Simulated scan of single mutants.
Amino acid sequence: MLISPALNAALREARFDGDAPLDASGVRRARAAADAVPAADRRVCGADERCAGTAEALGLRSEPEPSLRGWDLGRWSGQRLAEVSEAEPEAVSDWLSGPSAAPHGGESLLDLCTRVGGWLDSLHRDGAGDGRVIAVVEPAVVRAAIVHALGLPPQAFWRLDVAPLTLTELSGRSGRWNLRCGRSLSTGTVAP
């Protein structure tokens, strides 16, 4: 089970995250959603501040999982998409259209999907798939897991939307996953 983290200022500003923590609104929304989190035998989170902060606000005692860290976007981290698109239009175009492109100096889309897919496959290979695992991870990691689990072409990654504080469930086993997408954990309206 994968939970996408609450919003933070960087996402509201359409920035490549850059490992920014939750803001007060994100913490409030995550705390309000805590009762909707399903039980799990093992709890992990991406090694990013936003994921760790969301896990904490949800009341999940989780361990950081390095394989589930956010997408490494190299020198673009912390910048606004609009700024990067204006300064490097060809690089952004290459990045969006070429799964192996990494003009920012970080991970390519293929690298991200391979890393996340390796973790997903390890759940059963290492015997950890016998129980329910819940992971609080960045939306890009959720999308990469879906692409891997369903054997989708990498370009499908760009067609998947993952809203904040939603639960995506993958059940089954490596090579034969079932998907339940984007159930909201929100239990009501919370002031921003």
Rank of each mutant, 00 (worst) to 15 (best):
A57N: 07
P139D: 03
S184V: 12
S25C: 13
L160F: 13
S62V: 06
G175F: 05
S62K: 05
A140K: 12
F16M: 10
H124Y: 10
G78T: 13
S25K: 00
S67V: 04
G175W: 02
I3Q: 06
L2W: 09
G105F: 10
L160H: 06
G127K: 07
R176M: 13
W177L: 10
A34F: 08
L68H: 02
P89S: 09
D111S: 11
M1E: 13
R75K: 11
P103M: 02
L123W: 11
G131L: 01
P154A: 14
G175P: 06
D130V: 13
R75L: 11
G53S: 07
R125K: 11
I146A: 09
E65T: 09
A57C: 07
L112W: 01
V44C: 08
T114E: 15
D126G: 02
R180Q: 14
Q79G: 06
V37E: 03
R132N: 12
P66E: 10
G59Y: 03
L110Q: 13
E65L: 10
D48F: 00
T166I: 09
A149K: 03
L73W: 00
V147A: 02
W71Q: 08
G53C: 07
L179I: 06
S108L: 11
G188T: 00
V190S: 04
I3W: 00
P89D: 12
T54R: 07
A6I: 12
L165Y: 07
S62T: 11
L22T: 03
P99E: 12
D72W: 04
L110D: 15
E56V: 13
A24M: 05
P99Q: 05
R28W: 07
L11Y: 11
A149H: 03
W95C: 11
F157N: 04
P5S: 06
A14S: 12
R61M: 13
P154T: 10
A14M: 07
R80D: 04
